[in-house]
Simulated assay, not measured.
Amino acid sequence: MSARTDSAPHFPAEPDYLRIEGISKRFDDALAVDNVTLGVRRREIFALLGSSGCGKSTLLRMIAGLERPTAGRIVLDGEDLAEVPAFRRPTNMMFQSYALFPHMSVAGNVAFGLRQERPRLTRAQIDARVAEMLELVQLQRYAARKPHELSGGQQQRVALARSLAKEPKLLLLDEPLAALDKKIRQHTQLELVSLIRRVGVTCILVTHDQEEAMTMASRIGVMSEGVLLQVGTPDEIYEHPSCRFTAEFIGETNLFHGRLEGGRLNGSDFPAPLAIAAEAMPAPGTEVWLSVRPERVVLGRQPPAAVNGNVPINAAQGEVDEIAYLGSHSVYHLRLGGGGRRMIASVPSAHWGEASAPARGERVWAWWLAPDGVVLTR
């Protein structure tokens, strides 16, 4: 999981710029989007994140006017968009394929939407706007080229320039970086965020790539099976998931299932009852799952103390089953106790100091502080 390189911008309290109220979309007997309510702030980059078929692209298309909701309404900057056709909405959508016209030059592609404006713009106005957009995306010297003469990253910037040329109130991005290879995609994520913030346009990004959402968005909405499960900042979504789906979909986690009895989680396949933070304690007898991120797990050759200060520790001995060396850190796959329970731990390479790191088959201790586990009731 890559870390964000900047903090999310601070948004003062103000009415939602985009308000989605109880939106549903049914295709025959299939409910693609199920009663979604969501607010997006002015100048925010908001990501809809989920696996394929979860309803995120259908929701984006309803905002754009390309699909009509079965129920609910969409309000943008105080205007109800229910009766506004797609071509009249103050939105612009950039598709995954970029949808550039192959027979037009870069400048012609950027100018296309401007030529459809009513009242008509003059040739001088169009040329000035195209020049401004190409300067924004640093493609001035490619104005006369055709799309096939550009790299994937350059085509993406042409599509973005075309989307921004009409100065939409809302920019909609549908998997905008999916066509790029990993190395270019990582660089382009930050470049795209910088461009969007410079323009100051409100943006909704649809992606199935958790790293892309965590890097680019101020807030994220996690979707599954048409339902919006959780909305929050990247750190809120990762550190405090609201359900098992979010915990497992965003990054990796260890999940332990059981019931709360006597202030501990019993019945899980961890070798001992699990201590949890007192402030996270639901009612006794509640069936819960405990999520523990791999980087919260500490490995050592010696057992830890039972408590760290006044903080309880959960610990068990296990055998190193597999090791994935990733440079800055290694991911250890452990088999705990005498059973088949598996657990993963992400350990910085510098953790072992001058000592050698554990090898496959070696016995080690794994432990974490009780407050580092997140209790989930669904």
Rank of each mutant, 00 (worst) to 15 (best):
P15E: 05
D16Y: 01
R19L: 11
I20F: 07
I20Y: 13
K25V: 06
D29R: 15
A30D: 10
L31F: 13
L31Q: 15
V33F: 03
D34N: 15
G39Y: 05
R41L: 01
R43L: 01
I45Y: 02
I45H: 01
F46G: 04
L48W: 10
L49S: 02
G50C: 14
G50T: 07
G53V: 06
C54H: 00
C54V: 01
G55N: 11
G55Q: 02
L59H: 13
L59R: 10
L66W: 13
L66I: 07
R73N: 14
I74P: 11
G78T: 04
E83D: 15
P85A: 01
R88S: 13
M94Y: 00
Q96M: 13
L114P: 05
L114K: 06
R115A: 09
R115M: 09
R115Q: 13
Q116L: 14
E117F: 12
T122H: 03
A124H: 02
A124C: 03
Q125G: 02
R129A: 12
V130L: 12
L139G: 11
S151K: 05
Q155T: 04
A159V: 12
A159T: 07
S163H: 08
L164C: 03
K169I: 08
L170V: 09
L171K: 03
P176E: 05
L177F: 11
A179S: 15
A179R: 14
D181P: 07
K183M: 10
T188H: 10
V193D: 00
S194N: 13
T202P: 04
L205M: 09
H208Y: 11
D209A: 03
E212F: 13
S218G: 03
R219E: 00
G221K: 07
S224L: 13
Q230T: 09
Q230I: 07
D235Q: 11
E239M: 03
E239P: 05
H240P: 05
S242F: 05
F245H: 04
A247L: 00
G251R: 03
T253M: 10
T253I: 06
L255K: 04
F256L: 12
H257E: 15
R259F: 06
G263A: 08
N266R: 15
S268P: 01
P271D: 02
I276V: 12
E279F: 12
P284A: 02
G285H: 09
W289G: 04
R293E: 05
V297K: 04
R301W: 09
Q302A: 14
P303H: 01
P303I: 01
P304F: 10
A305T: 14
A306W: 09
V307K: 10
A315R: 06
Q317W: 08
V320L: 03
E322V: 12
Y325R: 06
G327R: 00
H329V: 00
Y332M: 08
H333C: 12
L334N: 06
L336R: 10
G338T: 11
G339L: 09
G339V: 06
M343Y: 02
A350E: 08
H351Q: 11
A357T: 03
E362C: 00
W367M: 09
P371D: 11
G373T: 02
L376P: 03
R378M: 05
